[in-house]
Amino acid sequence: MSSSRMRGRAATVAALAGTAVLLAAVPAFAHVTVTPDTAAKGAYSTVSFKVPDEEDSANTVKVEVNLPTDHPIASVSIEPVPGWTAQVTTTKLATPMKTDDGTVDQAVSKITWSGGKIAPGQFQQFPVSLGPLPADVDSLSFKALQTYDNGDVVRWIEIPQAGQPEPQNPAPTLKLTAAEPSGDAAGAGTGTAAAAPSADTASPLVPVTSAADSSDGTARALGIVGIVVGVIGVGFGVFAGRRRNPAGAATGGAPDGPSGPAV
């Protein structure tokens, strides 16, 4: 076999291998996901459940997202999505939660969006505000069901496991990170608490000026510029007059004509 033919076959094999890798990677971009995929423990966060339509000729007509009841979230609110109706399902908690607003014995366990349509090749985002997020776990998984108008139901319910390949139908998962230290905690290390500057305290590096001071300064600047421009104009006029009458300028005599003596 000639070397050119071998190179051609090698290029063909490489191209087929690359195509296979791309085809295998395409479904990973079409999962139902939560965006952003990270949030701080104990904080409130607004996330969006991003739902793409993967069918060639069917529309997505219903989306169900289940919230974990083993780590319930006390406050859940939904941003309206045009064309879609949201229905919230709550569950009574076996162990009530204590929050800053009191004791909570019920929590949202499922949100169902219906009435809208996601066409093939399109996606829709469903924003939700959650909080406070649990501080005793490193992630929250939201099992989701996607229903098409042809009757197909895709169950995004497989929980990703660390060190394992991504499952075929992974549940949207929100990673929880350590909460950022507060200003008091940061100041405790030096014996002083970090305080934000008040409105009555002026920074020594930034002068505080009122609107009137600013207007006066602008007026002064414009006046100075006008004076300078006027002086330049007068000088230019004198210079131009002398060039038009060099003889008179040299002898001091008056120019010819009825216009009178030169100034």
Rank of each mutant, 00 (worst) to 15 (best):
V137Q: 02
Y148T: 08
G163M: 08
P167L: 10
G187R: 11
G131Q: 06
L174P: 05
Q164W: 06
L176W: 10
P160N: 04
P165F: 00
P120F: 01
P132W: 06
V128R: 11
L174D: 13
E158Y: 09
A179K: 11
A179W: 06
T173M: 14
P165V: 03
I159Q: 04
P132R: 04
L140E: 12
E158R: 08
L145F: 07
K110G: 02
S109G: 15
D152C: 01
G151K: 02
S114N: 07
S114E: 06
P165T: 03
A119H: 13
E180I: 08
Q125V: 08
G131R: 05
P181G: 00
Q161A: 12
Q125R: 15
A135W: 04
D184F: 10
D149E: 07
Q124Y: 09
N169Q: 11
Q168P: 08
D138C: 10
Y148S: 10
P127I: 07
P134H: 05
S139C: 08
S114Q: 09
V128F: 15
W156Y: 13
G116T: 04
A144N: 00
Q161G: 11
S182A: 13
A185L: 14
G121K: 03
A178L: 15
S129T: 15
W156T: 03
Q122L: 05
T177E: 12
F123K: 13
A185C: 11
E166I: 12
